[in-house]
Design a protein around this nucleic acid. Structure first.
Lengths: 200, 200
DNA sequence: GTCTATAAAAGGATAGAC
DNA sequence: GTCTATCCTTTTATAGAC
């Protein structure tokens, strides 16, 4: 049986994702969880504390919620990167192209976030790109030896966020697909470079 | 002497950019413009109509406000692309890395926008990428003949939006710089491919 | 920890005189 | 077109009993 805290964080993860932080009222959270005001404010002194709880849940759940499902049955390190992007694609399609990255949306919606909130958004991005960086390290000599793996991993996040933003705006997954296609070309060219230089 | 409409749109462009749409109240617009409620609602029947006016202003001003300043003194079509990104970089630095693309931020803040609003956001993105696509066309044979120019232009927007998002979140322009560096590598590899195939 | 009731403020929008 | 005053709703948060 879920605690009040778990109910609230679960509802908030969904509602902040669907409606945004500012457009989700505490009353929305209460009606969704069937809790009363007193219970919520007993656990979370303010609405912002709910946001902190949500961001911590994403931070703590990245492996189980995101990476494990995306990488099930995928071994090749570079294919793991595109398998993760493919998971985002299914989410875009399943939501009729209204999908937004929950972290990215909060990153742009909150214009003057508290340091604690901003740090948690940053940590979520960092953990995502660290996972990609791990794949790049595993790819070893398939990439040119001087590849800036951190920059390349961040570029994967950049492509995802930009692709999601445009697919959502245009309500057309093609915009995401084209971003992925360009990123794939980028990796293909890097791999081709690595081979050429290895030979020459 | 500016009309009430111009004052309101000007103030709204700034405040929606600084604080976001939901966090900007009509009272904020009134105090900034020194207008009274009646004047605003005479011109704009609702707050959302102000948003429409703002998005139309960005749409109509892209050449004068964005492209002309970015491209002053730059002729090379591919350098024009990176000159535009360099303009974003200066805006990031000038705002102490709090800069957000006004259109991209609205695209992610508004979760269930009216069709009119969503179309205007989409048109703003389209005009931006069309401008880049023009550069790619001007680049002619420097790019491989089968280059998907629309997809590549959208990828430039993707890189900008993703780079801006991360630079803002981490309050570190390095995140934007690395995105641009990766995009530059992408173009360099495309140009190298075009040369190789032209020879072979 | 949870309940009900309510405070206190901010929000978008309107009315009617000028 | 602009002025002042104000309505009505929503919102975050609190009080105090149980």
């Amino acid at each position: 049986m879920p605690t009040a805290r778990e109910k609230i964080v679960g509802a908030a993860m969904e509602l902040f994702w669907l409606k945004g932080y500012n457009s989700t009222s505490v009353a929305d959270l209460l009606s969704r969880t069937q809790l009363n005001s007193g219970s919520l404010y007993h656990v979370f002194p303010s609405k912002q504390d709910v946001l902190v709880g949500v961001l911590e849940a994403y931070r703590d759940g990245i492996e189980e919620m995101l990476l494990a499902p995306a990488w099930k049955g995928v071994d090749d390190p570079i294919e793991k990167i595109f398998a993760l992007l493919a998971l985002y694609r299914t989410m875009i399609v399943e939501t009729d192209c209204t999908y937004g990255c929950p972290i990215g949306s909060l990153a742009l919606e909150l214009h003057e976030p508290d340091p604690q909130v901003r740090d948690l958004i940053a940590v979520n991005f960092e953990n995502w790109t660290k996972a990609i960086e791990g794949c790049l390290t595993d790819a070893g000599k398939r990439l040119p030896p001087r590849t800036d793996k951190r920059a390349l991993a961040q570029f994967v996040l950049t492509a995802m966020e930009g692709g999601v933003m445009q697919a959502r705006t245009h309500r057309d997954v093609g915009y995401f697909d084209r971003a992925v296609k360009q990123l794939r070309a980028h990796f293909d060219m890097l791999e081709a470079m690595a081979k050429t230089k290895a030979r020459g």
